[in-house]
Design a protein around this nucleic acid. Structure first.
Length: 372
DNA sequence: AAAACGTGGTA
DNA sequence: TTACCAAGTTT
């Protein structure tokens, strides 16, 4: 083990630290839907949803998801489209597809019982080192570390660990620390308490050290360096891509949608046909040509006003220019990933936020036109 | 190891 | 407005 870390760990009264932390948690823990019981499936779903996502955002999705897919069996048998739709707006959609694939694996290979050991649970899609430790400790009471961003922040302060927590290699050091510190009498509460403390007290910018149950154990507080920790390097800026998006309507009141590829960005989500904008062509012309070449459709761009919609991802920004097109001829063969759908069909499709906003705006404009 | 992968909230 | 943040995993 790292010498500096070992020195710090030996300065901690492990028994007292665990007791102080867990006692605080028992008193202060938030009343959250996934804390209703220790059903491993419920814990699992919550851990996947909570990845990179705030508690307040997750709660309504979680409640709805557990109503729709209450058990391993229910989720295993559900159509993937339904699962993606239930995830619409949550982001990182591969989480939903991986979760269902993993649940199907549990259903078929483990008789519907979520594995209670590190090797098997880690082999499941979408279950990385954090989630594996979280399920094993919270649902099964196993003394495994569950190191997330909260835990790295809290422990970087408690133990004055100056490693860059943005680097993948840093996580191991924190796992070592947790293995040393973990409260064997209640690993579930210990891990949850570490995260809860990070969420409520030991926050990124202004930690409330005066409220901290383990202030007496904190090396950073003792030397006054809590505001300098953790060390976290910056991520690079997002790139901008300009897109042309088209709402193509036929004479049956239907609109053209297409499903994205099953790999990569927004995999398997539905959208209005979109193209990377060409610098050379004027939008009308490019739209007409691409509808012809990619969808075998003869379309006329209407002169109703263009809409504009931005979509900001972590690593990417779409600047979308949205036009409307009229299609007279619908006999031609659509590509495999495309469909004509009605207004009400659209609401049932899983769409990314930008396309959902466009769909809503389009619906409003239709309703206005109908009135006048 | 570094980049891809979503979204909404906050300073 | 920019920048960072939130219970990470996969490639």
């Amino acid at each position: 083990m790292n010498e500096e870390l070992e020195k710090r760990l030996n300065q901690v009264n492990v028994k007292k630290f665990g007791e102080d932390l867990v006692q605080w948690f028992e008193q202060e823990m938030r009343d959250l839907p996934w804390r209703e019981n220790k059903d491993p499936y419920r814990v699992w779903v919550s851990e996947i949803m909570l990845q990179q996502t705030r508690v307040d955002t997750v709660i309504p999705y979680y409640n709805h998801f557990m109503e729709q897919f209450p058990t391993v069996e229910a989720l295993a048998h559900a159509p993937e489209d339904d699962v993606l739709k239930a995830w619409e707006g949550l982001g990182y959609y591969s989480r939903a597809r991986n979760l269902q694939a993993a649940v199907r694996e549990v259903h078929e290979a483990y008789e519907g019982i979520v594995p209670d050991n590190l090797k098997e649970i880690s082999s499941l899609k979408g279950v990385g080192p954090y989630t594996a430790g979280a399920i094993l400790s919270i649902a099964y009471g196993r003394p495994e570390p569950a190191v997330d961003g909260n835990v790295m922040r809290v422990l970087s302060r408690i133990l004055t660990i100056w490693d860059d927590i943005a680097k993948p290699s840093s996580r191991k050091k924190f796992e070592t620390a947790v293995r040393h510190l973990i409260y064997k009498e209640n690993p579930s509460y210990f891990n949850q308490a570490l995260m809860e403390l990070g969420a409520i007290v030991c926050t990124p910018t202004s930690p409330s050290c005066f409220l901290c149950p383990v202030q007496a154990h904190c090396a950073a507080f003792e030397e006054g360096s809590q505001h300098e920790l953790p060390v976290k390097s910056k991520k690079k800026a997002a790139k901008t891509v300009e897109l042309l998006t088209v709402i193509a309507e036929n004479n049956n009141g239907e609109v053209l949608v297409s499903q994205r590829p099953e790999q990569g960005l927004l995999a398997n989500m539905w959208e209005f046909p979109s193209f990377e904008k060409s610098v050379k062509n004027i939008p009308d012309l490019q739209m007409t040509e691409l509808l012809k070449s990619d969808y075998h459709i003869e379309a006329v761009i209407t002169d109703e006003g263009w809409m504009y919609q931005d979509h900001i991802f972590t690593h990417l920004i779409w600047k979308m220019q949205v036009g409307r097109a009229r299609v007279e001829e619908v006999e031609s063969q659509l590509p495999e990933n495309a469909r004509w759908v009605t207004q009400s069909d659209i609401e049932k499709l899983a769409m990314p936020v930008s396309h959902r906003k466009i769909a809503n705006q389009w619906k409003e404009s239709i309703e206005k036109e109908t009135k006048s």
